[in-house]
Design a protein around this nucleic acid. Structure first.
Length: 401
DNA sequence: CGACGTGTAAC
DNA sequence: CCTTTTACACGTCG
């Protein structure tokens, strides 16, 4: 009997915690019933975060359409929209849109355009993430305005308790920062994420195991998390419209169109299957990009801007206590074609110590691309390793994100 | 297999 | 006219 239970536990652990050390088995029996019951995962998304934060700290713009912009500095209105609040979205303004177009749509209306202030948003975000950390077994911050919480142990399989936790979190965030958020709760990260997308803003959607199939089945494939524009084009040709179509589609045909791995992946998405753990991940690369004031036709013309970028990249990298092995430049020419060049070197701690490598890559790029005219450039270090002591995963995660 | 470059997706 | 940052998968080459 003991043997049987162990076999069962090991197989569960394989499915659920592939990356865990075998010493996790020590805790396995204590978690037997949790394993048996499955997990409860919560995903939280702060509603039009940047715009809402600005609205909160500037009483004079309350209730107005607000558009947060990334100005590229090339001309008065060059750049793109980062976030539009719901009032602005009613006018057709949305993220990613050129600022000039957003201003056309806003013509004659009282719309507030603001440059983004990431520093401030990060401060607000950090406070909220701290709050979330207190509510969960594990926290995974995936971006400045999104996080996953594992509530499995905390709620012991009780979905109504999980809903209570969500409501509590929502009211705390409102109290503390006057912000709303959308929350999804499900048996894995994918389902939780789809739940939080389902009702916005200020939503709360719970999808239990038994409800996954019908929820995912009725959703258009274009709304599935992880399925983007290119994939949709192919799915469309195959006549696949919603989750049900994809979940039940002939695998061989999918494989012919997407390759084995991607076929498997998108079909699992359509079935609401996912088993990745909620855990704070360390960054694997750091980069910094910028649009040039003026188009550049030679390496020497971009060195000035590149050195500024490297100074910032250096700070970012040092702050995380990261070392790197790979150095890259990223170029975007006037036709918006992106290219990268990279080189792997002996492990280094100092970005500025590797300036000559960035410069050489840039020179080589111009040598290899005769007549190219650059609009934007970027620098990146990857192949990161971390030296700082990992006091607790929580603190380290916060430090690194 | 590691290094390098590109494409897709999400934020 | 067209921003920024990251992850990951895949093909290719030596």
């Amino acid at each position: 009997m003991k043997f049987f239970i162990n076999v069962f536990l090991i197989s569960r652990l394989k499915v659920r915690e592939k990356n865990e050390d075998s010493n996790q088995l020590i805790f396995a029996s204590a978690r037997f019933f949790d394993d048996f019951m499955g997990r409860i995962i919560l995903h939280l998304d702060l509603d039009s975060f940047y715009a809402s934060v600005e609205e909160m700290r500037r009483p004079e713009i309350k209730g107005k359409p607000i558009v947060i912009c990334v100005f590229s500095g090339r001309s008065e209105d060059s750049g793109a929209v980062s976030t539009a609040n719901y009032k602005a979205r009613e006018l057709g303004i949305g993220a990613g849109m050129p600022i000039a177009r957003a201003k056309m749509l806003a013509r004659g209306k009282d719309v507030v355009f603001l440059p983004n202030d990431i520093e401030h948003y990060t401060e607000v975000s950090d406070k909220i993430m701290d709050l979330l950390d207190d509510e969960a077994d594990a926290l995974e911050q995936v971006s400045i305005d999104e996080a996953y919480l594992d509530l499995t142990d905390r709620c012991r399989g009780d979905w109504r308790a999980a809903r209570k936790v969500a409501e509590e979190i929502k009211s705390k965030i409102k109290e503390l920062e006057s912000l709303t958020c959308s929350v999804g709760i499900g048996p894995n990260k994918l389902v939780a994420k789809m739940g939080s997308k389902h009702k916005k803003p200020d939503g709360l959607t719970v999808i239990m195991e038994g409800e996954v199939q019908s929820f995912f089945g009725n959703i258009p494939v274009s709304k599935l998390h992880g399925i983007g524009f290119k994939t949709i084009e192919v799915l469309d040709r195959l006549g696949i419209k919603n989750g049900k179509d994809l979940a039940g589609f002939d695998f061989k045909t999918l494989k012919e169109n997407f390759g084995e791995n991607k076929a498997k992946k998108i079909q699992e998405i359509a079935r609401g299957i996912g088993d990745t753990k909620v855990e704070q991940r360390l960054k694997k690369q750091v980069s910094k990009m910028a649009t040039l004031k003026e188009d550049a036709r030679s390496a020497e013309q971009v060195f000035g801007r590149m050195n500024e970028l490297l100074a910032e990249l250096s700070r970012k990298t040092a702050k995380k206590g990261a070392r790197f092995r790979t150095v890259s430049i990223i170029t975007i020419d006037t036709n918006l074609r992106m290219q990268t060049k990279s080189e792997t070197i002996p492990e280094s701690e100092s970005v500025l110590g590797a300036v000559h490598v960035f410069e050489r890559l840039m020179k080589d790029f111009f040598k290899e691309n005769d007549g190219v005219v650059l609009r934007r450039i970027g620098v990146r270090v990857s192949n990161l390793t971390y030296k700082k002591i990992q006091a607790t995963l929580k603190d380290f995660g916060k430090f690194v994100v």
